[in-house]
Design a protein around this nucleic acid. Structure first.
Length: 1059
RNA sequence: GGGCCCGUAGCAUAGCCCGGUGGUGCGCCCGGCUGAUAACCGGGAGGUCAUGUGUUCGAAUCACAUCGGGCCCA
């Protein structure tokens, strides 16, 4: 054991511990140690390689690390491969920005090979940066061996999964409407659409009915640019539609509008007057035909037979008639497919109109809105602007459009029931994350569009024959090489694009150009991380995962994508339990964002208080699934708690070193045999703290099992602060100061050693650095090399003593009440009191204070005696207090005299008589009055110099009356304290001796101290000589001379070190 | 527009499932302690339990609505 630094320096401590781990490869040792244990298969949700982690990412890994460390200590062989998500649009967009690109054409010009190279480099560089940041948090995952979505064997896992989908008929090549980003020129998944406010036109348009002059259907839209693709109008079968004669600018028009909406629509069209001519059910309108108002300038529109249909999604809003463009809307598309409408989409990938759009050709759709409105001419009935939520591309923030294109889909809608069934089998923390949130999300799941028209991603392994249109899904690299007869250098684009396969029809199959949605990459992580399908042994033994934990945003992300892919590939959920955690918000509960300037980074927290405090703060602040409001004050509080832990650890070390203490051990390995054998002989406070740490261990264990890290950490912090620092250490200090051999001191050493060892074991998963540092100093010579090699201890019932813990609880209440009463009586704790009396009816209070822990009580109260009185304490008297209102009624003008009589009467007598139901005669001669129950109340009257304070089920009375003996001791203690203060100022060592001189101005006090306390003082301050005298100042030869005012008595004290 | 979570003193939280005087920590003020000491301990002040309505003898707790925050969706 070595001396411990006085100041808790988290940063320095963590650096040296990390260095120690590195040089000794402690992580590998720990894994090796558990390698034969029962496997615990954890899958790391791969963070996207953006380069910097934020507080939420840190939280995520801290949670994972703490839970995994717990399982390792419990003997589990933890599969803890880290993962990184390294493909996808976000990286492409970053690289595009760096290269100054504006569109896909720039990439093609630059060369896909070079572009991919840049993306790869960017991802790898960031991955390395992130490794370091995670390691600085003290996270122990396998980072060097991390799975990366760019690895060939990982890509193969995705290919293999798609081949399974094809095998099961779950893969579909479809012409469908998808979310489309016109900047990135690709389809994007529902999961990639972000919603934000956007200003758009809100227009009402008249569609002329065929063969009915001056008669129109009125529709409403916020996307005028979709009108060139209009093919139909939908109505609701059951709505009433009105034919309205509308008068505007003295011109009459016949309009069809849902009847309840007529008034509102016509007001928007600024019609002076109108009349409803007739109404018809929506069903009666079905089959009507109309012409496009854009027919003259859009050639495409001239070929379309526009008609009215019924649809159930039509709502009674706007005009009650919905413009249908199956090429530009999901509902429209579904309806169009059902009704056999032409799916027209005159818009290209960049969001520009094609030739068939006539006068709009070449225009960007969102920019063409105004032109469309102009082209509508008189058919534009009304125009306003609305602000509404509109979808945007998650990466480049461009407003998305809907576009009908040829894409690849996984038929999630057909898997839905199976997925729901699987969700129910998973254990969710908290329960509602699965049963409510995730369940609801899957209930509405649609088919998953997995194809993207981009470059940096896993190529979709589908080869199509241009001759016969047959396609083949390739499941492995080997299969591809075999079928193509060519080696594959790199499974990425553009390398894989060059590989062709001969088709059975004699044609040459070429790969479709698409890559996978990046969410599909991570979806296969649970088997890809095991090397499957390349290697099968681990997969067969371990899969599905025992545990995963991610943020609540992953409900629609990774929890979902994994479940989808796994259900398709294996028909079951890829995880057995899931913990959903919250988000890191700022102190106001707002999202941290660069634009708000409220971002706190893990680095800055670590720089101030270290990773362990950050870990402890995050885990203790809120339940994992609640959002965390980051708060620096909270961090400071936890830092203080860590500092107290450090002080508690440090406090006994110098004494142990002085005494060359070695905890009882067997062959250099520590165990608790000594504690078990001697427990019953040990002082109560030792038994108590031993019991407590075991009780705490049981609580902590139960909490971690349920992912209740907040309960576990709060319990530990509470133990350190309340039980250990504020209670046990205070009691045990004097035993540490005993010089020479002492059983009591030895018990204290063994106890505190035991408690520290148990405590750091419990704390190790959460604070891996501090506990390692403490452990390295405490461990016996053959103990395991690291705290992280220790076995978890979940509390020994044999060492728990519930009744003792209860008794100590009572004594602590007593302790507080004493301090309270002393404060009222203005008697400092340093001054002894003769007696403390506890009055109670409670037997547990009597047993704790009066019997079992009486010695502790005397010590804590600094009292010569502490005794318990059941029922009543005879020194408590009663004081009678007159009730003036009643006296006035009863005695009229004599009231004042009666008041004086009552106040002067013996309260105790009065209470006894009246309490017995009698009246009492007070007064003399003519003035005698009968006093009854209604005239008085009684207040407790304490004896002089006795002060009271309440505690649960009892009242504590402290008698602060001084006797000469008590006074002598009090002053002696004052002198001791001042001499010790001076020793400290002189920076003397604990074992140094001094000579001292005290000149006390008050003759009586001087005599008091001199009389019985000279030897006691000398002993306490380690003085070889001590002169106490009434007059004269201390000689100048002292190292330090100081004037003191002790409770109004002037003293001049001098001390000098004996050399 | 829909789903889920959250809203308790200046700040952070417990209690809510299973209704019965609202605890704790930080900060603040006052006092104590002084061989853990740029630590530590005691006391005090500070609350419309987001708002409103309902159920009930009784609501922070149950129900409904509204407002605010977060995540997810349309």
């Amino acid at each position: 054991m070595k001396e411990v630094a006085a100041n808790f320096n988290a940063k320095g401590l963590e650096n040296s511990v990390q260095e120690h781990w590195r040089t000794n490869d402690t992580y590998a040792t720990v894994k090796q140690h558990r390698s034969s244990g029962k496997p615990f298969f954890f899958v790391d949700g791969p963070p996207y390689t953006t380069g910097t982690i934020h507080l939420g990412t840190a939280w995520n890994k801290i949670l994972k690390d703490s839970i995994l460390r717990y399982h390792r200590m419990n003997g589990r062989h933890v599969i803890d491969r880290a993962g990184y998500d390294m493909h996808g649009l976000p990286i492409e967009v970053k690289v595009e920005q760096a290269l100054g690109f504006k569109s896909k054409k720039d990439i093609e010009k630059y060369g896909i090979k070079k572009f991919i190279g840049q993306c790869r480099e960017f991802a790898i560089r960031n991955k390395l940066l992130m490794d370091d940041q995670f390691i600085n948090l003290g996270v122990w995952l396998d980072f060097p061996g991390a799975y990366k979505t760019v690895m060939p064997e990982y890509i193969e896992a995705a290919w293999w999964t798609l081949a399974r989908a094809e095998e099961k008929g779950m893969l579909e090549r479809g012409h469908r409407v998808v979310n489309w980003c016109p900047r990135c020129e690709t389809a994007i998944a529902d999961a990639e659409v972000e919603y934000a406010d956007e200003n758009d036109p809100s227009v009402f348009v008249k569609f002329p009915l065929k063969g009915r002059a001056n008669e129109f259907l009125v529709i409403w839209t916020t996307t005028p640019w979709t009108l060139p693709a209009n093919v139909a109008v939908a109505v609701a079968k059951d709505f009433e539609y009105a034919k309205v004669l509308a008068i505007k600018d003295d011109k009459e028009t016949l309009l069809w509008i849902a009847e309840p909406l007529v008034k509102a629509v016509l007001r928007k069209g600024r019609c002076k007057d109108y009349a409803i001519l007739e109404t018809k059910k929506g069903a009666d309108l079905v089959g009507w035909v109309y012409e496009s108002p854009l027919a003259s300038c859009v050639p495409l529109q001239r070929e379309i037979a526009h008609k009215v249909l019924a649809a159930d999604f039509v709502a009674l809003e706007n005009t009650g008639m919905v413009h249908i463009a199956p090429g530009h809307g999901w509902d429209d598309f579904v309806l169009g497919t059902k009704e056999g409408l032409p799916i027209v989409c005159p818009v290209d990938g960049a969001g520009k109109f094609k030739e068939e759009a006539g006068c709009f050709a070449g225009q960007f759709v969102r920019d063409s809105n105004e032109n469309v409105l102009v082209a509508l001419g008189d058919h534009l009935f009304a125009k306003e602007t609305v602000t509404h939520r509109y979808g945007h591309c998650w990466r480049c923030k461009t407003p998305i459009i809907f576009r009908a294109t040829s894409q690849w889909f996984l038929k999630i809608s057909e898997m839905r029931d199976l997925m729901l069934k699987e969700v129910e089998k998973v254990i969710w923390y908290p329960e509602w994350a699965g049963s409510a949130r995730f369940y609801d999300w899957i209930k509405d799941a649609r088919d998953w569009c997995i194809s993207r028209q981009r470059y940096w991603g896993i190529p979709i392994p589908v080869w199509v024959c241009p001759k016969c249109d047959a396609y083949r899904v390739i499941g492995t690299i080997a299969e591809l090489e075999e079928r193509s007869g060519k080696p594959l250098a790199d499974p990425h684009r553009p390398y894989v694009d060059d590989i062709t396969i001969p088709c059975t029809c004699g044609g040459t199959m070429k790969r479709v150009e698409d890559i996978f949605d990046v969410w599909f990459d991570s979806a296969v992580a649970s088997w890809a991380t095991l090397g499957f399908p390349g290697k099968t042994a681990d997969f067969e033994n371990l899969w599905p995962a025992d545990f995963i934990t991610e943020g609540q945003d992953q409900t629609r992300g990774w929890f979902y994508s994994q479940l989808g892919a796994s259900t398709i590939a294996f028909g079951k959920a890829p995880y057995k339990s899931v913990c959903m955690h919250g988000f890191a918000l700022d102190a106001e509960g707002k999202k941290m964002s660069k634009s708000l300037g409220n971002v706190v980074t893990p680095e800055e927290v670590i720089a101030k208080v270290g990773a362990d405090v950050l870990r402890l703060y995050i885990l203790s602040s809120s339940a994992p699934w609640d959002d965390l409001k980051f708060n620096w004050e909270g961090v400071g509080t936890i830092n203080r708690a860590a500092n107290i832990l450090w002080n508690v650890y440090r406090f006994p070390v110098p004494y142990m070193i002085l005494d060359k203490f070695e905890p009882a051990n067997t062959g250099g390995i520590w165990d608790d045999a000594y504690i078990r054998a001697h427990l019953k002989q040990m002082p109560d406070e030792d038994q108590f703290i031993i019991s407590r740490i075991n009780t705490v261990a049981a609580t902590v264990d139960a909490a971690i099992k349920e992912c209740q890290l907040h309960r576990a950490t709060r319990e530990l912090i509470n133990f350190i602060l309340e039980d250990l620092s504020r209670w046990y250490v205070q009691l045990v200090r004097e035993r540490m100061w005993i010089e020479g051999e002492s059983e009591s001191k030895h018990f204290a050493y063994e106890t505190i050693y035991y408690v520290m060892r148990r405590l750091i074991g419990l704390l190790a998963p959460v604070c891996p650095h501090i506990t390692e540092e403490i452990y390295s100093n405490l461990r016996c010579k053959n103990d395991p090399a690291s705290v992280h090699l220790l076995d978890w201890n979940k509390g020994e019932p044999a060492l728990m003593d519930g009744s003792l813990e209860q008794a100590v609880g009572i004594v602590r209440s007593f302790d507080e009440a004493c301090a309270n009463a002393r404060q009222t009586g203005k008697r400092k704790l340093r001054w002894p009191v003769s007696e403390v009396v506890v009055v109670t009816d409670s037997e547990p209070v009597r047993d704790a204070i009066g019997r079992r822990l009486n010695v502790v009580c005397k010590d804590r109260a600094n009292a010569k005696t502490v005794r318990v009185v059941m029922g009543r304490w005879e020194r408590i008297g009663w004081k009678a207090e007159p009730i003036m209102k009643a006296l006035g009624r009863g005695f009229g003008k004599n009231s004042f005299a009666v008041k004086t009589l009552i106040e002067g009467a013996d309260g105790n007598l009065l209470k006894a008589e009246i309490g017995a139901g009698r009246t009492v005669k007070l007064g003399e001669g003519d003035a005698v009055f009968d006093i009854g129950d209604e005239h008085v109340t009684f207040a407790e009257q304490l004896p002089p110099e006795v002060f009271s304070a309440p505690m649960p089920d009892a009242t504590v009375y402290v008698d602060v009356q001084l006797t000469p003996e008590l006074e002598a001791e009090g002053y002696a203690r004052e002198v001791i304290r001042r001499i010790n203060e001076m020793r400290k100022q002189l920076d003397l060592a604990v074992e140094d001796f001094i000579i001292a001189d005290a000149a006390v101005a008050d003759e009586r006090i001087c005599a008091l101290i001199q009389g019985t306390w000279r030897a006691g003082i000398m002993d306490e301050v380690r003085a070889r000589e001590l002169a106490i005298h009434n007059t004269g100042a201390a000689a100048k030869t002292y190292d330090m001379v100081k004037d003191w005012d002790v409770e109004g008595v002037a003293m001049t004290i001098g001390i000098a070190k004996v050399i």
